[in-house]
Design a protein around this nucleic acid. Sequence first.
DNA 1: AAACTTCACAACCGCGCTCCA
DNA 2: CTGGAGCGCGGTTGTGAAGTT
Length: 556
Amino acid sequence: MPCKTTESEEGSLPKDQCESPLINENNEGCAGGGVVLKKGPWTSTEDAMLVDFVKKHGEGNWNAVQKHSGLFRCGKSCRLRWANHLRPNLKKGAFTAEEERLIIELHAKMGNKWARMAAHLPGRTDNEIKNYWNTRIKRRQRAGLPLYPPEVCFQALQESQHDQNTVGVNGGDRGHHDILQTNSYEIPDVIFDSLKANQGVLPYIPELPDIPASSMLLKGLGSPQYCTLQPIMPNQKRLRESNELFPGPSASVGNGFSSFEQFQDDTCDKVAQSFGFSPPLDPDPAIKNSESFGVIQGSHSLSNGNSSASKPTSGAVKLELPSLQYAETDFSNWVASSPRPLLESVDAFIKSPPPAGTFEIDCSSPRNSGLLDALLQESKNLSSSKKHSSDKSSNSSSATPGDIADSSTLNICETEWADYGDPISPFGHSTTSLFSEISPISASGSSMDGQPPAETFTGIIVKSEPVDIAWTSDREEETTPRLSFTQPDALLGGDWLEQSSGCIKDQSIFATFLDDDFDIDYKHMAAGTSTSNQGWGLNSCAWNNMPAVCQMSDLP
DNA sequence: AAACTTCACAACCGCGCTCCA
DNA sequence: CTGGAGCGCGGTTGTGAAGTT
């Protein structure tokens, strides 16, 4: 379809038409009325023409640019060029530390509302911020680091909660805290009810919490990025990936166990994801089959779609750290997608409980990355230095999968997960992180002490990759509270609640985080009145149970 | 030094909203 | 009320630079 560029037609340019359908392979607009609209990089001459136009006519009416300036660019392109590069007072260059901090905070509050974020950053464009964020996300996810510093999480939560209380859930100042768009996070509680109803039936499914699903989805943390409607990779596709990655017996995971996998992805993982992380490694394949956690790694990705989509992994697998490829793990899938997948998965799972052997597949999770290498070594060092912390921590530091099962001993404070931003932390030996240790342990069937080199533990060469201390590299100062959100048990573990008082000064914040239902249980827990996992299903139980599952993978 | 990979940025694309006739 | 125009936004893609093998 010809690009209409004549004066009479200019105003009636079909939406966006000037750019896409009109452009031929030469990247130039097709002739519409004999005019070719140019695409691609702008020249200085074009810039000058555009600036001249704006000086004369002001901003806006971009489709008139071509008419008045002789610029063979569509209005949209002109607007973009002006907004991102030519308008005055644009600040160029790297983001300052302050700007970075602000971006992180704003993103925690707003999600992928780049334009709104840009409004808070004078001289910066939405595109700049978006690019910055996306690349930062990639770095962090590759490193398995949380997207947000804990303090930012809490702050965002606090603010969002406050806004909810004052403004209302959906009403009001949308312009500031999109986090309030709770509708985006709402999941019918029926989903969880349904799951809970089957708790006793599902051997590997942890009890489900009494926490309303909508609450679980962190009213707060959610950023629209988690909620973008992104096509869910069909379960089959995931499984196909798994099978491709691990052809052979391990592929048995796909035999009727997809649902479970999906279920886990959609629950445990995403809950964890909801906290802003992506597990650094395939934490424990055994726990979640091939993708219990790992899948998610790509997750968030970005859902900002950034996860450019789930590229199927195939053929020769180059083992790397989690990438955004695994969009299927995106939290958004869980949230934005209709509940159906989850329910269906559960149903399917109920119908076909997983064979125990299926866990073995994960021993060779593709997403066990070389990160393990460095981390394991570091974690060993770290663990030895942390043994002083407490018996509990020491227990966990020598954790075997079974030990980990006793996650009641978890204490993220002690473990200093703490060292947020410390690439070691997420995998710290002393931590009880399921993410960190289970994979190698379960794969090797031995404790950390006897652990084989990460490169060989699954018989697969794992490419080592330096940890990106994204946070610190971002000039973020690790600050209190040193609560790592990359560790699900950090948030969900039972004992942690008791022990974390020193970490979480304002417990109400946390209660807020998980909503009132959590608050109730939490209080019980904190009071020592409820140390069982009852009612904590997805929370503590989920994590606590994992090691048990993990042990299954120890089987030859 | 060449090939390859990764990164960062600019630009494009499609969707949806608002306004107005 | 409806449909088109204009525009903004968020996601995606393309590309060159830098780094690595």
